[in-house]
Nucleic acid binder design. Structure first.
Length: 849
RNA sequence: GCCCGGGUGGCGGAAUGGUAGACGCAGAGGUCUCAAACACCUCCGGUGCAAGCCGUGCGGGUUCGAGUCCCGCCCCGGGCACCA
């Protein structure tokens, strides 16, 4: 062999690893374990460059930890339920199950050539009945523990297709297929009681030291703990049963600025009024148009309607406030009713101006007290402000102080209580769709809602379904629904809702420890392998997936499926940035965008066109997604250059936590570098200069220290830069052959987590014993890292003007003498003494004139 | 709208409050070659003959010293509970 040939060596080394069983996870009590997990993929059918980046990162960690002596678990599976399979069946025919398993086979075939150190023996898909049957068993356990219940909740309803839409399927308030105006409609749905754990999930964030601060902050904000005042307004002219309207506010201190009471369109009072007032019913129907997302509701035009009902101000019974229905008030948060304090809340102010309601200042800024006009005055709650006529007798105080004083005042007078509330809502898991885990319950006319017997699990999805009409095929299946009641045996009906796919991904990490156990987990295995030591995935999962998994770990612990130590299942989290790309669109007949893949687009200096010359709009650079088609296929890079080039390339350029915009340039250069290393290893000539040995040995130890630190710190791009530096030192070195071979073996080891196939070849060429994958990680000798002299830059008034070289630990007083004697410094001083001389040992000197 | 990030040469990026631009890509020049490819060497933020001056999205501030800390903006991205 005379050149670097990845097409030949990569399959050979993969065979060698497989033969040696290098990546089989072994439950070995004698060794420390390390569980590294990358978020498992949705089987779309093609791997994209984001997958390559994600799995290479995990692989670097897995291979490194293995070299350090750990027993490593590094599994892979498929997040296989979800809408795209049903969409494919609707668009192209075929069955979601066939489509999904076909995609899994395709993607596995694309991943294997990457040479990842995955224990493929543990692979499973969430759509395997073996997996979702255990999920159903846990659902039943959770029902028994009171963690599951049913209640009404709103969904996106397409009135033309008569079906529930996902948020993604609502575009500008219209159904994606029918184009009809979407409505919010209530449906009875299944929920997990995640909100019972609000306080606990919030408090436990403090213990997650190895999670990114931003993720903890996002979760804390999502849980949204707030302290406020809850009280009731007495009503005038309200229907029977609505003598009081309960409100919750986090700014009770602004009560003297109240100008109206607002209730949600979904508030019981609104519904009671609607029944007798067709006009109001029409208004509420208008309010219910559009999607269910918080974004859609909050950015919709603010609409209101005076109900004619009045309430009495709690501090002044003669002061009456109007009750309005307002479309921006959410029924899910607080009590679904607020008082509007227009001077100190922008939304309330906009609303008040639109409907000509009073705007009353309750406090003013200490510097320049100007009344509010069209911008609400919202200083930080920690800032002191001047109060106008505060009922608790405050004059100058902060918002925080005023809030506490107000709550105390209300509690003493007995008309309100201080209350802690959370923004976090219970987790709605019902989906009116086929391709998901069936909820294992039966509806019986006499027994009510009854869980299926565990012996009857899994409740398998029927295969004989069609997707030629909208809606859930389970609903219209002729026989599947008909089952005897597990309780009384009478004919009964199965639940046809399936579970949110977030349920599937909330415990897969535990299942990997014993993927074929007859119970959700196996005690001995889960005890040994949990927790996940390093979890790696996209920042887009910072809130929902990770929060749901944290909840599920608690629920599993309560049901006896996880040990207490796994209550926080992910010890360390790394959130990689997304791989982004420009988007390309043409316009359909109805003006909606039709997306095109980069492969179908020709980029020119002025813009872009399709291959037939049709002009294409270039859209924003956003995360690669199937729906926008801005995805790039890494398979051609692997086919052309080999897996090591692809692996090195995705690790080398961008810091892993940051987004990276994919460009094809650079793969050539990567392969040149790898070929250069291979050549340097092959061409080590006998002879050489022993006097140059020490410098090369020192460079090797410096590289060990820097690359190890880079991998430990998830700074793979910096580790790669250090490997380039070491390679350059090696190429220039005239050291003896023996020293060069030893240095090359170190280089092979340091490169092996990133480019494992090349590393094996180089290791062998340089005389390494056995496989580099099983060689212990090298250790840097501190004596080889020490430097005797340091270069000190000299600044004059903060600008670099000269530099000196001094022994590393020279005392500051000695350094000062040398600095003052320096030509540039003497010239600048012109005989005068410096005003100040700052010496930062080993770092810098600053002369202040 | 709300919450969270990010913004540094032509490009990807580096920099415990201490020499801004490590390392790589692209580019320019050269050596080798009949020529090319490969490989190797040199240069490479802007401006200026030079000394120097300017320069980390914009505007202020703190500091002997700010890409880094503080205040106010702008732009881009992620999430917003049924995309996964």
């Amino acid at each position: 062999m005379s050149r670097y040939d990845p097409a030949v060596i990569e399959p050979e080394w993969q065979k060698a690893w497989e033969k040696a069983g290098c990546f089989t996870a072994r439950h070995d009590p004698a060794r420390p374990k390390y569980y590294v997990l990358e978020m498992f993929p949705y089987p779309s059918g093609r791997i994209h460059i984001g997958h390559v980046r994600n799995y290479t990162m995990g692989d670097v960690v897995a291979r490194y930890k293995s070299s350090c002596g750990y027993s490593v678990l590094h599994p892979m599976g498929w997040d296989a339920f979800g809408m795209p399979a049903e969409n494919a069946a609707m668009e192209r025919g075929g069955h979601p199950k066939d489509w999904t398993y076909g995609n899994i086979a395709d993607m596995r075939a694309q991943m294997k050539p990457l040479g990842l150190s995955i224990d493929w023996g543990r692979e499973f898909a969430t759509c395997d009945p073996e997996y979702y049957g255990q999920q159903q068993a846990m659902f039943i356990d959770m029902m028994e523990k009171g963690l599951v219940y049913r209640k009404n909740a709103v969904v996106n309803w397409d009135p033309v297709d008569m079906t529930v839409l996902a948020n993604e399927q609502v575009i500008d308030g219209k159904g994606w297929r029918s184009g009809a105006d979407v409505e919010r409609r209530e449906l009875t749905q299944w929920f997990f009681r995640i909100s019972d754990f609000s306080e606990e999930l919030l408090d436990a964030l403090d213990g997650l030291k190895d999670w990114p601060e931003k993720v903890r902050l996002m979760q804390a904000n999502w849980i949204g703990k707030s302290r406020g005042l809850q009280f009731a307004f007495d009503t005038i002219g309200a229907p029977d049963g609505f003598g009081k309207i309960e409100v919750y506010t986090t700014r009770p201190d602004t009560l003297m600025g109240a100008s109206f009471v607002g209730i949600s369109p979904d508030h019981p009072l609104a519904k009671a009024l609607e029944a007798k007032d067709p006009d109001l019913a029409a208004f509420l129907a208008e309010c219910r148009k559009g999607g269910t997302t918080e974004e859609a509701i909050e950015t919709a035009e603010k609409l209101g309607r005076d109900t004619g009902i009045r309430v009495k101000h709690p501090l002044d019974p003669t002061w009456e406030l109007p009750v309005w229905i307002a479309n921006f008030i959410l029924m899910d948060y607080g009590t679904g009713a607020i008082f509007g304090s227009a001077a100190h809340d922008q939304r309330d102010l906009d609303f008040a101006r639109k409907y000509d309601l009073p705007v009353i200042d309750t406090f003013l800024s200490l510097d320049g007290p100007t009344p509010v006009v069209d911008k609400a005055f919202l200083p930080p709650k920690s800032e002191k402000v001047k109060w106008i006529n505060h009922f608790a007798g405050l004059d100058v105080a902060t918002g925080d102080e005023a809030i506490e004083a107000t709550i105390d005042f209300a509690e003493k007078q007995g008309w309100g209580q201080g209350v802690t509330k959370f923004r976090l809502r219970d987790w709605g898991v019902s989906r009116q769709r086929y391709w998901g885990c069936p909820i294992p319950v039966v509806h019986c006319a006499t027994c009510g809602v009854v869980p299926e017997k565990k012996a009857n699990l899994p409740v398998e999805l029927p295969y004989d379904v069609s997707f030629d009409q909208p809606g859930n095929p389970l609903d219209r299946h002729p026989t599947w629904r008909n089952v005897p009641c597990p309780n009384c045996g009478a004919p009964a009906k199965r639940e046809t809702d399936t579970m949110d796919t977030f349920v599937d991904s909330s415990w897969y990490f535990a299942r990997f420890t014993a993927p074929h156990a007859k119970t959700p987990t196996d005690k001995a295995e889960v005890d040994y392998w949990m927790n996940v030591d390093q979890y790696i995935g996209g920042i887009e999962h910072a809130i929902l997936h990770l929060l749901y998994s944290r909840f599920f770990a608690r629920a599993m612990q309560i049901c006896g499926h996880l040990p207490k130590k796994a209550i926080e299942p992910f010890n360390a989290l790394f959130t990689q940035g997304m791989v982004t790309h420009e988007t390309y669109a043409t316009r359909g007949k109805d003006g909606r965008p039709v997306w095109h893949t980069p492969d179908d687009v020709i980029r020119t200096s002025e813009g872009a066109t399709l291959k037939d010359g049709t002009p294409v709009e270039i859209g924003p650079v956003i995360k690669m997604s199937k729906s926008k088609k801005n995805v790039v296929d890494p398979m051609d890079i692997i086919a052309r250059y080999g897996a090591d080039t692809a692996r090195w390339f995705v690790m080398s350029d961008s810091p892993p936590e940051r987004d990276v915009e994919w460009t094809a340039a650079g793969a050539d250069a990567t392969q040149k570098h790898l070929a250069r290393v291979w050549r340097l290893a092959s061409e080590i000539a006998e002879g050489g200069d022993p006097a140059q040995d020490l410098a090369l040995v020192k460079a090797a130890h410096r590289a060990i220290a820097d690359v190890t630190a880079g991998i430990e710190g998830f700074a793979f791009n910096k580790a790669v830069a250090k490997l380039y530096e070491f390679t350059n030192s090696f190429a220039k070195s005239g050291a003896t052959a023996e020293t060069k071979r030893a240095a090359m073996r170190i280089l092979a080891q340091l490169m092996s987590p990133m480019v494992p196939h090349l590393a094996e070849d180089v290791w062998k060429i340089a005389g390494g014993e056995g496989l580099v994958v099983t060689a212990p990680w090298p250790k840097a000798d501190p004596a080889m890292l020490a430097e005797d002299n340091v270069t000190l830059p000299i600044q004059i008034n903060g600008k670099r003007r000269a530099e000196i070289s001094v022994p590393k630990d020279m005392p500051a007083s000695e350094v000062e003498k040398i600095v003052l004697a320096d030509e540039a410094v003497a010239k600048a001083l012109a005989g005068a003494a410096p005003k100040k001389l700052i010496v930062v040992p080993g770092r810098i000197v600053n002369v202040v004139l």
